[in-house]
C-alpha cells in the first residue's frame, strides 16, 4: 500500500546500509512493510539506482546542517565522537513533523546534555558540557522569543 511504500522509501533514503543489502539481493529490509509486488519491484530498482547515493548524501547533509549551524562548538568538542552521537540521536529521536532548524538543534542539545555519565572520555566530556550548555542556552533563548499561535 502507498503509505508503506512511502515509509519504506524514506527509510531507504535514511539508511545507505539498507540500500546496499537490497542491492546485494537481500530483501529482508522490505519485509517490515505491507507492499504490493509492484511496490517491492519499484523499491528494488530505486535502491539500485545510481541516484540513490545522492538521495542518501543530501538526506544526511540536510539533517546535519541545523546542528552544525547552531551548535558549532558542540560539534567541534565532540570531535571524533560526533558521528556516533549523532547516529544515536537520530535512531532514538526520529522527527515527527516539519522540523525547524532551531527545534532540531534544541533537541540535539538536550540529547547531548542528557548523555549518561561515561558516554564520552573525560577530556572530551568537559569541553562538550561547556559548549552544549552555552550554545544550547542560546538556541532556547531564540526559540522562546516567539508568540504562541495555537
Amino acid at each position: 500500500m502507498l503509505a508503506h511504500f512511502q515509509q519504506a522509501l524514506a527509510d531507504l533514503v535514511a539508511s545507505p546500509s539498507r540500500c546496499q543489502e537490497i542491492r546485494d539481493g537481500d530483501q529482508r529490509a522490505l519485509h517490515d512493510y505491507e507492499l504490493t509486488s509492484v511496490e517491492v519491484d519499484r523499491l528494488v530498482i530505486i535502491a539500485g539506482h545510481r541516484g540513490m547515493a545522492a538521495n542518501c548524501t543530501v538526506y544526511r547533509s540536510n539533517r546535519l546542517t541545523p546542528i552544525v549551524i547552531n551548535l558549532p562548538d558542540t560539534c567541534a568538542a565532540l570531535g571524533e565522537h560526533f558521528r556516533e552521537v549523532v547516529d544515536q540521536f537520530w535512531a532514538e529521536h526520529p522527527t515527527e513533523h516539519f522540523v525547524h532548524f532551531l527545534v532540531e538543534s534544541d533537541r540535539f542539545a538536550r540529547f547531548v546534555n542528557d548523555l549518561p555519565a561515561g558516554s564520552l572520555p573525560d577530556d572530551a566530556s568537559a569541553r562538550v558540557t561547556d559548549a552544549v550548555t552555552r550554545e544550547g542556552r542560546a538556541v532556547r533563548e531564540r526559540l522562546t522569543s516567539t508568540t504562541t499561535v495555537g
Partner: peptide, 8 residues
C-alpha cells in the same frame, strides 16, 4: 511519512 517525516 506515516511514522514521521523526512526531516529538513
Amino acid at each position: 511519512t506515516m511514522r514521521g517525516a523526512v526531516p529538513n
